[in-house]
Nucleic acid binder design. Structure first.
Length: 938
RNA sequence: GCUCGAAUGGUGGAAUGGUAGACACGAGGGACUUAAAAUCCCUUGACCUUUACCGGUUGUGCGGGUUCGAGUCCCGCUUCGAGCACCA
């Protein structure tokens, strides 16, 4: 019986499919375990060997858990809506629905070959109406909710309306875009449109006129996490700030819960830290400043209330509404010019060029503690979107204020004893205060910390300020001016956004011919002809029927990519349910994802949105847990290992790596698939590109050696390795083993096909443990020897510990050692080999099934009980200790395994050789390290 | 600038404060073979010593410290990676 992996893998693939081996149903008699991978975007390029890394790791864990008796949910699906899918469609000139379908089929084919234990009956696709029904449903629920700060949860908007009717805004503590004040009478007098606008200020899904990241290159607005350094993450197009009316999600309302939740989940510190940074909680003080010779008051936010006596000017953000109010007639021309100039600058220019700029408004504010008049300036170093868009400037103790003061020649007043502010500001929150006293408040002599507390207390009591917590986290912009996304289930009733009745969901994405985005931001859905809502028949009808009486226009924007990926883990629990996102019964059984695997690049995107979305669903009573992903592992990226050939300049001659320094050469990327062990297949190279057909080579030792470098795996570097090619040559089991063997799961590491032979040899070596050269099974029912039992139980212990710690590379090393030992021992004992098959099953399921069957089992190895470790087999009769003097090993001694430390110590000191080292010198210390070393310190 | 993480042979990487370099690749040598492939065995951090065996020195980015003993812990750097960044 030769190890014919192609036949074996085909056979088991069919059996698994035929027998529904991986079908999962809720089973209250067994504990559940939910393993999940971040589902892929089905891109046009197909999978490369980097993609399945996380899937393999989670599949190993899922299979292990199943063998340990858990009912394991391990689903897979596709994140099919969104920018990448649409960009690919546009590039290839095909409809996104067509390319998406094609790409999914290709992904599925590739995934299937690797032997995953996915329950494909639970597959979800975000672009299918049966799925996005519930994305739209959740959006409607968010629209119909506001966030109560008192009870820290979402509430139905009807409750808020009742409050307005009875009390207006009095006694309200809710999340909002801006603080409004009105009486019940005023509320009741509002017309429908006005009421709608007011409620938008409170809804969790709301429409707001906000500064957005507008990307003309992609023809859409983007969320903050989709923009890096002023350009779009997708495509790298410039992004500018623009005021637009957009749908937004009030993620900021959940900032504190998102922060607190981090302490309850098992995620890496680095990703928690990233999220904490992104949420950016900052505890400070809001203070009122009166404007001189005016009844205008404005509020600033500061974390350094203690420095109030050092304020020498104020600064407003150019976008602030106060700018118009505070600018004096004399300064108006200058201010207008400045504001216009700032508006012209894109985000990118602001980042690239951080010049100090600003303009005086002409007004003065009154310092509430000193009564001094202080000039109010306008500068773009103050951001409109953070705090109140206005600050008090303390140049002595803030480097930005310092730079501004120096530039415009404003006063710098130090407040901390002994600090030198002649060259730079003293920003540290330490030291003893000075120059900080008025008739009622004396901070002099206090530490900075004490002063902050004292000032907070003072301004609160005096009613000139209050303690305030600010967050950097902004609301998520939820509209995209693109075609390929979930349509909003919204129509416009005379300008008032209105939700479609729930029974009309899902609102299906219409087929249109021209789905390309437009530079002006006009959504492609504007081209749809059947895109109006008839409130009489509750049907989508032609736009030509719009009469704004019973037939109204539908929303033209679509939802962003993260909409569909925010609650998909819930849908896997109950993917075919037409009546609910998930049934209470399924939800109560599976609860949350126990193990979530994916890349760390989603730290500030998907992983925030998903947590937010889940918290909202929890408030609604749909999700049963506060945090959706109990444990998160971020697998590292697989990088490419590129190969180079060296062309001598202006020739078609290529010189081997070792000789290239003798010539003037240009390195050229060469396809890694025609290079083996850094040796170029010269004939394949000639056939690779027409221009190389006549290439000549300068060889060393008769071979052409290529150079190499680790780079991102990408088509343009010709270093993409397709898993299909590896599987064809070595089999899926070898691929799985090798991906895990490459290195620690969470670390980025380069793919190097050269090393794969080691894993393939291991698989074949294991095969020969079971079979004779003539192909017959060579299993014996004799009792195993002591050595054999020791070897396999060492493995059981190591592999069990390593899987629990997700240290798969070291467990594979342990397999290699064990199989080597068993080969040396010529072990053919059923008991030992049965355990070996059970242990290898999660890693190499195909060969495990084949051998499991060969051992005479009729069930699948997936349900084979995980072997139990027995410590007795590892016990040794005697242990060799190294005897050291002053840290240097001198000789060895054997002791019984159960010898006590005292016995060992006494025996060593009585030993003749030891005596010769001691040689009458006093012994300071004897250290007996269990099972290892006896160190005698003289 | 702030926060977090990393640095070990030619390569990927192992090492609860206890014999650094497991395991694998690559390389070198050998066995089998007409030959090759496949397979198996040996060597493989560097340096020194030796005909050989044996033996020695040194060695985990750099500089200190704690300890009988440090890749591992502490302090101070260097370099690389990641996140945040006029966030008041």
């Amino acid at each position: 019986m030769e190890y014919d992996f192609r036949a074996i893998e085909k056979k088991w693939h069919e059996k698994w499919a035929g027998q529904g081996t991986y079908k999962v149903v809720e089973d209250s008699s067994r504990p559940k375990y939910y393993v999940l991978n971040m589902f892929p975007y089905p891109s046009g390029a197909g999978l490369h060997v980097g993609h399945p890394l996380g899937y393999i790791a989670s599949d190993i864990y899922a299979r292990y858990k199943r063998q340990c008796g858990f009912n394991v949910l391990n689903p897979m699906g596709y994140d099919a809506y969104g920018l990448p899918a649409e960009q690919y469609a546009i590039q290839t000139g095909q409809h996104p629905a067509v390319t998406t379908e094609k790409n999914i089929a290709r992904y599925r084919e590739q995934l299937d070959k690797i032997g995953f234990s996915f329950d494909w009956d639970r597959e979800v696709r975000t672009c299918e109406p049966g799925y996005y029904h519930w994305t739209q449903w959740a959006f409607q629920k968010m629209f119909g909710s506001y966030y109560c700060n008192k009870c820290q949860c979402a509430q139905p908007i009807e409750k808020l309306i009742q409050h307005f009717e009875k009390q207006g805004t009095a006694g309200l503590d809710v999340a909002c875009s801006e603080e409004l004040t009105f009486s019940p009478a005023e509320w009741n007098a509002m017309d429908e449109k006005r009421k709608s606008d007011v409620l938008m200020n409170y809804r969790i899904a709301y429409q707001g006129e906000t500064m957005v990241n507008w990307c003309a290159g992609l023809g859409t607005v983007l969320a903050n996490d989709e923009v890096v350094e002023g350009v779009s993450v997708r495509g790298g197009f410039p992004v500018e700030q623009k005021k637009m009316r957009q749908w937004c999600l009030r993620v900021s309302a959940y900032a504190q819960r998102l922060l607190d939740g981090l302490d309850t989940i098992d995620w890496s510190d680095s990703i928690k830290e990233t999220q904490r940074n992104w949420i950016g909680r900052s505890e400070g003080t809001e203070m009122q400043f009166k404007v001189k010779d005016s009844d205008i008051e404005f509020t600033i936010f500061t974390t350094r209330a203690d420095t109030i006596f050092g304020v020498t000017f104020m600064v407003l953000a150019p976008e602030s509404e106060l700018v118009a109010q505070l600018t004096t007639a004399a300064q108006k021309a200058d201010v207008d010019a400045y504001v216009a100039a700032v508006r012209k600058r894109t985000e990118r220019e602001r980042i690239a060029d951080r010049k100090v700029t600003g303009v005086f408004s002409g007004s003065y504010a009154i310092n509430p503690l000193t009564g001094e008049s202080i000039p109010v300036w306008i500068s773009d170093y103050v951001l409109a979107g953070y705090g109140t868009g206005a600050i008090m400037a303390v140049p002595a103790h803030d480097s930005r204020d310092y730079a501004f003061a120096k530039h415009f020649g404003l006063e710098i007043r130090p407040l901390i004893e002994g600090c030198d502010v002649s060259e730079e500001s003293f920003d540290a929150k330490e030291g003893i205060m000075m120059n900080s006293a008025n008739a009622e408040l004396n901070l002099n002599g206090l530490t900075v910390k004490e002063s902050i507390a004292a000032t907070k207390r003072y301004v609160t009591e005096k009613g000139i300020g209050r303690v305030k917590v600010n967050y950097r986290l902004r609301d998520a912009i939820f509209s995209r001016q693109r075609y390929w996304g979930e349509p909003f289930p919204v129509y416009y009733k005379n300008g008032i956004p209105t939700m479609l009745p729930e029974e009309c969901l899902p609102l299906q994405l219409p087929e249109i011919k021209d789905y390309k985005p437009t530079e002006s931001g006009e959504p492609p859905l504007g081209h749809a002809t059947e895109w109006a809502f008839d409130t009489k028949s509750n049907k989508v009808v032609s736009k030509s029927l719009i009469d704004n009486v019973t037939v109204f226009p539908l929303e033209l924007n679509t939802m962003p990519g993260f909409a569909g990926s925010s609650a998909y883990y819930l849908r896997y629990m109950d993917p075919k349910n037409d009546n609910a996102l998930v049934s209470a019964q399924a939800d109560n059984y599976w609860k949350c994802v126990d193990l979530y695997l994916g890349g760390s690049e989603h730290a500030t995107g998907h992983l925030i949105y998903s947590r937010f979305w889940n918290k909202f669903l929890k408030d609604l009573g749909v999700s049963v847990v506060e945090e959706p992903f109990a444990k998160l592992i971020n697998q590292g990226m697989i990088q490419g290992r590129s190969n180079f050939v060296y062309r001598i300049k202006d020739t078609n001659t290529f010189v081997s790596l070792g000789l290239k320094n003798q010539y003037d050469t240009t390195p050229i990327h060469v396809d890694v698939n025609i290079v083996s062990g850094d040796v170029l297949d010269v004939e394949a190279f000639k056939a690779w590109r027409p221009e190389y057909e006549t290439a000549e080579f300068i060889l060393e030792d008769g071979r052409y050696i290529c150079g190499w470098a680790v780079e991102k795996m990408s088509k343009s570097m010709f270093n993409v390795v397709n898993p299909d090619v590896i599987i064809e040559k070595y089999g899926a089991d070898t691929l799985r083993m090798y991906e895990m063997f490459l290195g620690p799961l969470e670390q980025s590491k380069p793919w190097d096909t050269n090393g794969i032979d080691g894993c393939h040899r291991f698989i074949r070596k294991m095969w020969t443990l079971f079979t004779d050269r003539d192909g017959s099974l060579k299993i014996s029912d004799d009792a195993p020897s002591k050595e054999e039992l020791k070897s396999i139980h060492k493995l059981i212990k190591k592999v069990t510990e390593d899987i629990e710690a997700f240290s798969f590379n070291t467990s594979i090393a342990a397999f290699m050692i064990c199989v080597n030992e068993l080969s040396q021992l010529k072990c053919n004992k059923r008991q030992v080999l049965t355990d070996l098959v059970k242990l290898i099953a999660p890693f190499a399921p195909f060969i495990a099934e084949e051998l499991w069957e060969a051992l005479g089992n009729s069930t699948t190895v997936c349900d084979a009980k995980w072997p139990e470790f027995n410590e007795d087999y590892l016990k040794e009769d005697s242990i060799t200790y190294s005897i050291s003097f002053n840290g240097k090993t001198r000789f060895t001694m054997d002791f019984a395994a159960d010898a006590s430390q005292d016995e060992i110590q006494a025996a060593v000191l009585a030993n003749e050789k030891a005596q010769s080292y001691i040689d009458g010198k006093p012994i300071r210390k004897v250290i007996v390290v269990p099972r290892k070393i006896v160190n005698i310190v003289l």
